[in-house]
Write a protein that binds this DNA or RNA. Structure first.
Lengths: 358, 358
DNA sequence: GATCTTGATGAAACTAGTTACATGTGTCAA
DNA sequence: TTGACACATGTAACTAGTTTCATCAAGATC
């Protein structure tokens, strides 16, 4: 850039535009473009374009010649130029609260795989659960040309809503299911997931239940899980503890709940990450799981089957969710028809962190 | 797309091109572009472009008028068209082995933050540690127009090397330091990191040391950590166990090493994730940490300070690495000068999973 | 009053591809 | 022999922006 500018100044004084261009080009060793290739291969730009996009329509002979020139000139077609013409960037944006929780990386891994199979790239952005950051990141994704967005949950800022209305971008909300929401949702029933866990605990005889969950602010999934419990909790057997979704958060909540006058027989965590922290903090306090305290999670992270004791949890089908969401996006982009919301089943996985209470 | 084609067929029969275009435009409710805005605001396209890029050069009056039109037409400038002209997509690609390990998500989080501060977007791709997948993903990133790449380590496939030579793309190798490598490296001394841990254990009197590490295939960082140990291990006090980098992998390795005839006094893990699995498997086998077995990790994940017992580990400065790498990329793109390799210091964090051995 | 400078704006060329349409050639059936 | 058709290819118009250069008016300087 600097160099080119220098040359320009010199040229403006000499007053010869042609020399200016030539020198500028010499200086910056411009990447070869379609025209360069066409010239060198003695064909039209259309033919080069055909070699790139539908090689079968070009004769064997010409094709080979063009391909040779492409290789020798190190020609790499410009994604931007292609996007401008086709109107397609083949980029899909996903916005998740965090990458720190393995539940999202698992989801993104299968999502990415599914999209890649259809020639789409996935761009990931994180929000820390803040709808305003979400709106910012969504704008950023639109700026780089994302053709569709995938978000978590149904709580979004007005800026975000405005953006998607304005751009009419395909958007799918995941990690939850709500067939009445104005965007298609693909996910599980969060109220149901926590209810599965509570059902299991109640029928095992537990009556003093501590619930450890992440921040409720701006988090519809956590709220749904809480509401799922409250519907079942006629006798007010539940006490809730809010904390950060991290191992440390689990430890913190455990300290809080152990300091209560009530003594609980089980701790129900809305996330396996929390359960991990709870488990460690219980160990630190020499409280045996499940003998002295039962423990249940939600998520079913891979690590939850390896802990000691192995954690009883509600399996959330995030891998399926990634695949289903990817396919839905592909169809939406291909057929311009918004997909229907899809409900995926959560499932109780009983392991060794729980016991009957009597 | 389909609709437009239909219209076209009809028109070819009627033989009126003008109607064809008009209908096509009506049908697909084209997004407003610069020309539309210019026409509606009664200014030239140049002026609209100025309003977007250097508003101060446009008179108060005109600027407001154009901005009103932009708002009312829901005009969103095309990223592709902008990229084609400026030659800048403002997209940087990062290729990491996995998102499953928190060490990478932490790195990516600070990297993304740093790049965002300079108006750059980060696109993430994962490889499962396979150099061939890495080459594929790198090609994908180039295809979507990434201006620079960030990779892990120095082991790359010929295809990858060819790609970056061909495209002359700025590439930084992270998670390691090698000032003689042909790409700039920004990271820590892996051999040194494992040596810090071993030094500590040797001086605490440990002589029977089990080393648990991830796959060595295509992983220069693991190999470097191993070589770091072997240099110190004159008396062959080490025995190594290879496994997958996951909590389950840590469990598996522990089962293997417990089945050995040798009895170890400490287990040194090349990753905190492995240490977590080891810890659980030791618990499952009623082996007390650190009383009966010491345990050391490398990484210093946030969760390692919350476990019971808290895990002694070697802190790797991944947050700093993200920031430093981001700044280096920004400078490289701005000044077209490759940055120097940078060495970041690893540091021993002594917690409660280790004790003196005598 | 003439010239210089500055500021605001527009026309048109430019970026790098795709694609509609036209053209020319060769093959085959009527 | 001619018309129909497929095939290969070129021309030029398109995509949606940025940027250079030219223009013109208003105010400043000599």
């Amino acid at each position: 850039m600097k160099l080119v500018t220098c040359v320009k100044v010199f040229i403006e004084k000499s007053g010869n535009l042609w020399i200016s261009k030539k020198l500028a080009n010499q200086k910056r060793k411009k990447r070869a473009n379609l025209r360069d290739v066409a010239k060198a291969a003695n064909v039209s730009v259309a033919t080069v374009s055909r070699v790139l996009n539908s090689p079968v329509t070009v004769s064997e002979d010409t094709r080979r010649r063009v391909q040779d020139v492409i290789a020798s000139l190190h020609f790499v077609p410009s994604a931007a130029a292609r996007a401008i013409n086709t109107g397609r960037t083949r980029v899909v944006g996903a916005i998740v609260p965090t990458l720190d929780n393995a539940i999202f990386s698992k989801f993104l891994a299968t999502l990415e795989k599914t999209l890649a199979e259809h020639g789409l790239s996935l761009v990931v952005a994180t929000t820390k659960g803040d709808p305003n950051i979400e709106a910012q990141k969504a704008q950023g994704l639109v700026d780089i040309g994302a053709e569709a967005l995938i978000v978590s949950g149904v709580t979004h800022s007005p800026d975000f809503e405005k953006l998607i209305e304005l751009t009419r971008l395909p958007v799918i909300a995941t990690s939850c299911y709500d067939k009445n929401y104005h965007l298609p949702t693909i996910g599980y029933d969060n109220a149901g997931a926590s209810r599965i866990a509570l059902d299991f605990l109640l029928s095992a005889g537990h009556r003093k239940i501590a619930v450890v969950h992440g921040p409720v602010k701006d988090n519809d999934r956590t709220l749904a899980r809480l509401s799922g419990l409250k519907a079942l909790d006629q006798n007010h057997t539940l006490q809730t503890f809010e904390t950060n979704i991290s191992v440390q958060g689990g430890c913190d909540a455990t300290q809080m709940l152990l300091a209560e006058t009530t003594s609980f027989s089980v701790i129900l965590c809305f996330s396996d990450v929390l359960a991990l922290g709870v488990l460690f903090e219980l160990q630190r306090n020499r409280i045996k799981v499940p003998d002295e305290m039962s423990l249940v999670g939600i998520d079913d992270l891979p690590s939850s089957s390896c802990t000691f004791p192995e954690i009883t949890t509600v399996h959330l089908p995030v891998a399926t969710m990634g695949e289903t969401t990817g396919e839905a996006i592909v169809e939406w982009l291909d057929n311009h028809v918004a997909p229907k919301s899809k409900l995926l089943q959560a499932e109780l996985i009983v392991r060794n962190s729980t016991r009957e209470f009597n």
